[in-house]
Structures are given as C-alpha cells and as structure tokens.
Write a protein that binds this DNA or RNA. Structure first.
Lengths: 368, 368
DNA sequence: GTGAAAGCGCTAACAA
DNA sequence: TTGTTAGCGCTTTCAC
C-alpha cells in the first residue's frame, strides 16, 4: 500500500499556505526547522539540542533556556522518522480490526490504546473490512512502518505472510480468532462454553426444540458456538433436527428467512420454541422478527451471543452471553507488551470467560 | 517515551532470523535485512533493489527475478521510516477522536479511513479521552511522526499549539466542534437548525412546556443545540422557564435528577410535557427514566439529538434528530486531501444537515 | 558541559 | 539497464 509515484507531478507538501509561489525563486524553501537550525539559532552544538529535546541530563540551566527559546521561536518539532531510523524502535503498535465501524470493537480498541499508552506507545489502527487481502496489506504496511508489535483480529485464515516479520522481532498477538498456519499468542473468549451455557439456560427453562442461527462455518468463533449448542443439547439428551441449525451468515434477510422457517416448523419438523443467536448482528435481526405483532401471541425465547447496548430496554429485555471486549483488548495488549519486554517462551492461548446475563427473553417458557 | 535499548551487548549480525537465543533482555528488531543486504545477495546495486521494491521501470525481467528471490529469501521489508525521512512525506494522516469507545465515532473513523485508503494513505488514530492535555499530546505526537494531515475532534478549546505545525504544512481539519483560537477547516452538523427542528416538532404536536437537558455550556455543540431550542420556543411565542433548561452535562445521575425535577414541576413551575435531549447519552438515560412503570400513566414526549442503534425497537420508538457521522468523517477527510492536493485558499466551514426521524416518542401528545 | 563526526536505510540525482 | 554518490534529521560515540 503506497502512494506510489504513478502520479509524477504530485506537489510536495506546501511548505506554508502561501509559499507556493516562492518555491522556484531559488530561496531556500522553508522546510521544517531541524535540530541543526535550532542549534544555529541558539548558538550551540547539535548534540546539545538533542539533549534538551530528549530531556537528557548534562545541560546547564542557561544553555537549556537558550535552546528552549530557539525551539519555540522556530516552531521546532522533532522528526520521529529520523529518530526511529536511528534507534530502531518506534514505540508504536498496530491494531488490525475487522471493522472499525463495529461497536463491538470500540472498547477493545480503546483498551489496547490504554495499555499502549501506559507503556509509552502510540496505537496505529486500521480495519480489514473483513477482507483477507486487506488484512495482509494493512498488517504489512504497519510492519513497514516498524511498529514494535501487532494485535490482529483475523479476517484471513492464513498468516504465513507474517512469518518473516515475527522472525524479525515483531511481537504479534491474535484476538477473537486463531491465527492460520503459524503459531502466535492468542486471546479468545470461551465461545464453546459460553454457547453451551446459553443453550443450557434455555433448556433449564423447559425448552426442548431450540434453533441455532449463526455465522458461517469456517469462522472459528461460529464453529465453537455451534459446538457449544450441540454439546448443551447432547448433555440434556435432546435431539437436534438439522432444520434447527442455520449457520449461514449474518445477512439480515437470510437470518429472517431462517428464523421464520424454524418458527413455522419447516421441513417436517415441529416449530422451535426458543432461538439461540450466534452473534449480536443476528440477535438484533431476531429481535426485530420476534417483535412483529403477529408473533406476540406465542412468544419465543431468545438468548444471544454478545451483549449490546440497550438490550435491557427492549421488551422483553434480551438475555445474552456477554463477551467483554475491553477485557479481550487489555489481555491481548498485555500479552504483547510482555513479549516486547523480552518474554520469548512458547506462544500461549488465553481464554476469557463469558457471562450469562439473564434479562427476560431467555426465561420465556415454551409456548408450544 | 519507550523502552530504551541501552543494550550494550549488541547481538551479532543480520541474517539469522531465528537467533532467539542471542537476546538476553530487551528485545530488539535484531538486524532486519536492508536493501543493501538484498543487493549483495542478488549481486546487483542498491538502486536496482530500490527500483524493484518500488515498482519503478527500467529493470530487466531477469534482474528483477533475482532481486525478488533475494527479497523473499531474506524476508526483506522496506523500512518506511527511512523512506519517509528521505521523501518528506508519509502517506499517512492522523485522526484524534474524543473517545474511541463511543459508537458515534466508529462510522466517522471508518469513513475517514476509507477516504485515506482511496488516497493511498494510512490512518493513525487515537483518542483524547476528552482530556484537552491528552488531545494536545496526541496531536503533537502525530505531527512528530510527520503525518501529512490531521483530523481532529476537539476536546480542548485552544489549539494555538498547532499553529507551528499548520504553518509547517500539516493540513488540519476539525470536526464536530470548532477549533479554538486558530483558523482551520471545519466540518459541523447544523446543530442549531437540527435542535430547532426537533423542538418545533414537539411544539407542532401540541407541547408548550418543553424541557431541555444537554451538555455543558462551553461545549460548542451544546450551545448551538440550546440556542436552537430557545429559537424554536421563541418562534412559537412560548416562554421558557429557566427550570426547564438543564445544560449540566451527561452524567446519568445528574440527567436523571434534572428530568425528575422537570417532570414534577419543581421550582414553582408547571411540569413539562415533553423533553428535548441534547445528545445520545442523555437520550438513553431519559429513555430509562421514562420507561419506569410509574411514568407509564402519564407519557412524556421525547426527541433526542443523535440517532442510536435500536432506537426504533424501544417502546415507544425514539424520535431523533440524526447526524450522519460517516458523512462528517467523509467530508472532513475530503477537505483534508483537498488541502494536501495543494488547495491553499481560506479555511472553510462545512455545515452538514441533520435529519428528523419521527418514530413515536416525539409524537406523543401533551398529557398535562 | 559540550560538540564533531559517523552512520541508521532509504531515495534523488546523476553518471556509466 | 544499471550503479554511485549524496544526503534526509536524528542518535551514538567519543573527544574536548
């Protein structure tokens, strides 16, 4: 990813708003002031300026004052690119999200930022838009900028492209989904156990025919949650009709169609009396389906994976299996800085618990 | 700043990627291969490698092949810091948000990213956590990294600290709130008109005593929205009792207390029959207050500034004056790249319209 | 306390 | 088509 010179005449950044005309006048065009400029203005050596800028000891009060004045008067700001080039470390980490616009990731991103900040590092983030190619492009662009480490929420299932980077010392932690075909640190919610618990909750409230609507297989979290669903059913000795399982993605129309089918008891099966939703997008769609006036007479129980804002204000309030995105982000960032601080043991996997929050929709008894 | 590598024993040479045993403490990007290494391995000159890496013309198929092989076998990746240092441009822009964890900013951030991407630039973002000092710290850190431009959602009301940066050519665009004490491009929602319209909507539905609960004065958006409230009331010839106006912040307890007071008709005034909320956080709190069982008998109308997810699923569904955060982000980013492409006219202010979305809560008639 | 000189890894400008 | 030579602005080293 680069702004490549396919554009031959891209003007360099305007030095100052109206310097455009001055540029060919032979005058030394006003780039930004450098340490050298500051040194000249203050009448000191270059290294002294460097000392002042970096707060190093060994500069007399008097000299420091002169340098500070020169800095302010010239509007100097250290060029970190040069610094990075020399020092080899950037004090920045990268975060590759699946989707910057998904509220689920906001607290995660924020938590990573807080940890980074506590370690004096800047966070650079971008989103893959769930596109594997874009994930790779972004991750490698961050590596080219020499971030010290990388937190990745995978959109792809093959991360071998990162092997040279990891070998070169870029600490890398995956969150929410495991890395593909390489070994690396990993932070996950306990998707299996969370789903199992959610479905067991419905069973405990008397349901025997429970539908599962979730994301596509191939997505690790979706597989785990489906596995949890099946485990809960099996533990209770309940059969699972295949018509009750719809792991077909989060597209609203698809979800709606599957839900309607299950509630009608399609393909010869009896209608389900409860639904378990594989993630928050599915849940919201299901809430809409179930809120339809004609459904009101025969209420259907619902438990959703993932919490979401206002779930408690809906009627009925929605029972969920909540992940803690901030906690995931914090754990990942801490794992990362542990590596950056020198830990070089085997990659580890951290599993974070989920929490069942009973609010009403999951406690509706079967109405069949 | 960061973990300083005051590491006296500098591990051997580049090349061996897996020399994990060599590092004693303080990890490092121990010897990544450079173009020079690639050149040596491929038996070509440095500049030839540079040409291949940057896709420049003028390299024979054969040479290119050899270079590519060397690149892969060494795991080379261009060091962008060096490139930036030389070229003076980073192809990256910074975004300073108020709060990375606020869902309102997610689409905004995403929109900025998309525009940046279309221009071949990377987006670096961070949040000020609504702390003016932190905003400055972040913005200046981004400048030190030589971002080409900056999009800022201000937390502070004095941006003179940016003057040297702007003079040095860092394009800067403010969003959502105006910059303080400097001139710069600005993208705003039409807060005044939006609030005026929202309150007028309540008046049109028969309300005469309408309360306003919003953010603190001093915050530009809050001032504008309050001004819109007063304008709508004035246009309708309605008086505004000062007990109906609570511009005291978004703290839930405070909002709840103010709402309860207004609904009870405190300080000798009659109770309000409708509430206008100054932003989404206030709105959510008010929804909770109004949803309390004891309020159900005497329903109160509500119009909120800012849309939020699931507003349509609440009962009653919430009428809002919606901003379009993605649109704000897109507009800001486009303004920014316009500057980066050389525009040097006067700073401009772009005002984006809001949309009234009637869903039910705002159409409840007065019950007084 | 202070400063001169030597790079960090890359690209621009110019040879060859 | 290819290579050589200067730096970009900073930190490091070491001499003063």
């Amino acid at each position: 990813m680069a702004a490549d010179a396919s554009d031959p005449a891209r003007p360099p950044l305007p030095g100052s708003p109206r310097a455009a005309g001055t540029r060919r006048g032979g005058r030394r065009h006003a780039g930004r002031p450098t340490m050298k400029d500051v040194a000249a203005q203050a009448g000191v050596g270059l290294k002294t300026v460097s000392r002042v800028v970096n707060g190093e000891a060994g500069v007399s009060q008097d000299t420091e004052q002169r340098v500070q004045e020169a800095i302010t008067s010239l509007g100097f700001r250290r060029n970190d690119s040069a610094r990075v080039l020399r020092k080899g470390t950037t004090a920045s980490i990268g975060l590759v999200l699946e989707d910057l616009a998904d509220p689920f990731y906001s607290p995660l991103s924020r938590a990573v930022e807080e940890v980074a900040r506590a370690h004096g590092a800047l966070l650079i983030n971008g989103s893959s838009a769930e596109d594997p190619e874009r994930e790779q492009e972004l991750a490698l662009a961050l590596c080219a900028r020499r971030v010290d480490g990388l937190v990745i929420i995978p959109a792809s299932d093959d991360h071998r492209y990162l092997a040279p980077e990891i070998a070169a010392g870029v600490a890398t932690v995956f969150v929410d989904r495991p890395p593909g075909r390489i070994a690396a640190d990993l932070v996950l919610s306990d998707n299996f156990e969370g789903a199992r618990e959610g479905v067991a909750h419905l069973i405990a409230h008397g349901h025997r025919r429970i539908g599962y609507i979730g994301d596509r297989p191939g997505i690790h979290t979706a597989e785990e949650r489906l596995r949890g669903y099946r485990a809960a059913m099996a533990e209770a000795g309940l059969p699972v009709a295949e018509a009750w399982v719809a792991p077909g993605g989060t597209d609203a129309d698809r979800v709606r169609a599957d839900a309607v089918r299950m509630l009608a008891g399609g393909r010869g099966g009896e209608p389900v009396t409860a639904l378990f939703s594989g993630n928050n997008r599915v849940t919201v769609t299901l809430v809409r389906v179930l809120a339809a006036p004609e459904r009101r007479e025969r209420p259907v129980a619902l438990v959703g994976f993932d919490d979401f804002e206002l779930a408690d204000l809906l009627s009925p309030p929605v029972t969920v299996v909540a992940q803690d995105p901030a906690d995931l982000g914090r754990s990942a960032a801490e794992l990362l800085f542990r590596r950056l601080d020198g830990a070089d043991d085997e990659p580890r996997t951290v599993s974070r618990p989920t929490t069942l929050i009973a609010r009403g929709s999951g406690e509706i008894p079967p109405s069949g």
